[in-house]
Amino acid sequence: MLVGVGSTLLWMMFSSLVIILNSSLYRRGFAYPSTVTGVGQLASALFGVFLGRLSDGQRLRPVPPPRVWLRSLLPIAAATAASMYFGNLAYLYLSVSFIQILKAFTPAITLLLCVAARLERLTAPLLVSVTMVAGGIAGAVAVESGAPSFSMLGFLAFMASSLTEAARVVGAELLRDGSRYNTAETLTYVGLPTAALLLLGAAIWELPGMMAATAAGGGSGLALVAADPWVFLAAPAVSALVNMSCFFAINATSSLTFKVAGCVKNVAVVAYGVLVHGEAITTLQVAGYAVSTAGFIMYSHIKMAATKPRPQPHAGGKTE
């Protein structure tokens, strides 16, 4: 229990901190989300290699054959890279608080894609929970859209992030190659190609602008890294700590507990944006977020109950 509580609290702290650190980089003018996420994903993948060597239960099996890479792991890595890129791109245009509110909408998109792919059956309770999530978020977006800080480009970037994240979840089910990868293998065999795709995108689309900004002077581009290198080193390091604490938390707590902790963490980040950066959030947005959060918890509870193994009957027909 102590391991579960401690690791969950650490995960909440580290996952909140990585959001704060990344948004801090963007606020300083380092507007290169593919670079930031690529370096962070590379640190997480290296942690996967370290975990595989450290833990007997997380040993890395031989590298999957090319067929598995091309048909299963690479498409999932591409969806992961797109989700991470668009999610961080949204931070350039939207407030931290508003993005945390929008995050509650991702499960609704995931469920709809699962239903379309015939991986999920839409029951009445699930429909109610998803309607609560969608209705709450729609209300919050309607209020925010009238504010000067609202950016349609940022909103579309976040929706692209949610859609690609849902596609990653669905793709992981449809493209499963029969192997069940442990945490270390997932971080390594999916994380490394994800990092490679993000860093390749950074080299093509962001590096020329970064070098031009550096050459122009004025403390932009790589000059920002030289001026405060610890912030740039801390962000990927914390990304690895997020995965480490997540690994211990998932193994020591229930899925529902972990998801509720994620809701609490998002609320804390919303509060941070309001209190530290003075981001505006209205009463109607708080109400919409509360409705969507309640819907998400209901959704998580229904999903968890559906995956519980049912008691098997004895020969006499009675169950324990």
Rank of each mutant, 00 (worst) to 15 (best):
M1A: 11
T8D: 05
V18F: 01
T35E: 08
G38W: 01
A43T: 02
S55M: 15
R59M: 14
S83G: 09
S83L: 06
F86N: 02
I101A: 13
T106Q: 13
A108W: 05
A108L: 08
C114N: 12
V115Y: 08
S129A: 08
I137A: 08
I137S: 13
A138E: 14
E144F: 07
A147E: 14
F150L: 14
S151A: 11
S162T: 07
L163R: 14
L163G: 14
E173N: 11
Y181P: 04
N182T: 05
T183S: 13
A184S: 14
E185C: 10
L187N: 06
Y189S: 13
A196G: 03
L199M: 02
W205F: 06
A213T: 05
G218Q: 05
L224A: 02
V225G: 01
A226D: 03
L233N: 12
A235K: 00
V238F: 01
S239G: 01
N243Q: 14
F248V: 13
F248R: 13
T253W: 08
S255C: 14
A261V: 03
C263I: 12
K265R: 07
N266S: 02
A271C: 04
A271H: 00
A271E: 01
I281R: 01
T283P: 09
Q285T: 07
Y289K: 11
T293M: 10
M298P: 04
H301K: 15
H301E: 11
H314R: 09
G317H: 08
